[in-house]
Design a protein around this nucleic acid. Sequence first.
DNA 1: CTATGATTGCACATTTTGCCTAGTTCAAAA
DNA 2: TTTTGAACTAGGCAAAATGTGCAATCATAG
Lengths: 158, 158
Amino acid sequence: MDGSSLDALDARLLLLLADEPRLGVLECARRLGVARGTVQARLDRLSAQHVVRGFPPDIEPGSLGYALTAFAVLEIAQGQREYVSDALAAIDEVCEVHATTGQGDLFVRMVARSNDDLQRVIDTVVDVAGVRRTSTSIALSTPVPPRIRPLLERIARR
Amino acid sequence: MDGSSLDALDARLLLLLADEPRLGVLECARRLGVARGTVQARLDRLSAQHVVRGFPPDIEPGSLGYALTAFAVLEIAQGQREYVSDALAAIDEVCEVHATTGQGDLFVRMVARSNDDLQRVIDTVVDVAGVRRTSTSIALSTPVPPRIRPLLERIARR
DNA sequence: CTATGATTGCACATTTTGCCTAGTTCAAAA
DNA sequence: TTTTGAACTAGGCAAAATGTGCAATCATAG
């Protein structure tokens, strides 16, 4: 069980489920050309080993009324990164946070309902204790939405 | 059918499926305390209206052998944004691209197997015609992994 | 060569699905 | 207030899928 604990069959199975998540085990087995028990075993293993965190619904935030997406780079005070991270995690509109190289910054993705709402969200983020400086930019479009698929397909092909 | 085409029941259903995607319609109905037909109807509507793009597997790139995540801000030549976007979309390691306000920049998230590999990926990105200047940073940690859940829960509570 | 783990093929009882009908709620329109 | 329509509930039915167990086959590493 090395680093790449996914083989081609696993990858094909995941791609299948990504396209049609409500597919039954038997139907998966048919399409993959393997026995039902095999698919069942793979599925059990994948969730047991947590290589798949889950199958969260891929929802356009716009459908929920959050039309705007914005990014912020935060410069934070020494030693406050963990505290700030936790505070950001508690904000519903914050959809993603990464700590990055550079000047010990945090990178934040957030959503909002409108320009006014975005102002409020940004204020909430900036007001977190330990945040020194921020630089914000708004997403105008998303040419490549978050995806893992190409990597999976590469494995599946093998 | 207004902007927020999701009501509390939809949200609870999505949360349920997010946790246990292989749940059957009947089981969902039981847990939500509604009739089977209702769940079936909601599910049909959700996919028909494309409020849910799908249920892609949430996979730790590390499981696939891609241990590194990096971000790049690209400054691109006038009028080349679409071309550059397409070129980036063709790179497997590029997992996300946004066009942002500012100086007509693109924001890119990418993954790589190792430092050497990251160098190669970055080179590939930078070599795309139309890319003027880039600034890259590496993700050290991800305090808040991509999530939509808090927004869903807010709707579900209502 | 042989043991171990994965996969296959098959069978069984039970559950779920897909599809349908009919009665009930409830809110908005008339 | 009454009417109307959409959404929901409750049930029935046949077909299909699931969970489970088991013996046989295969591949691979020791």
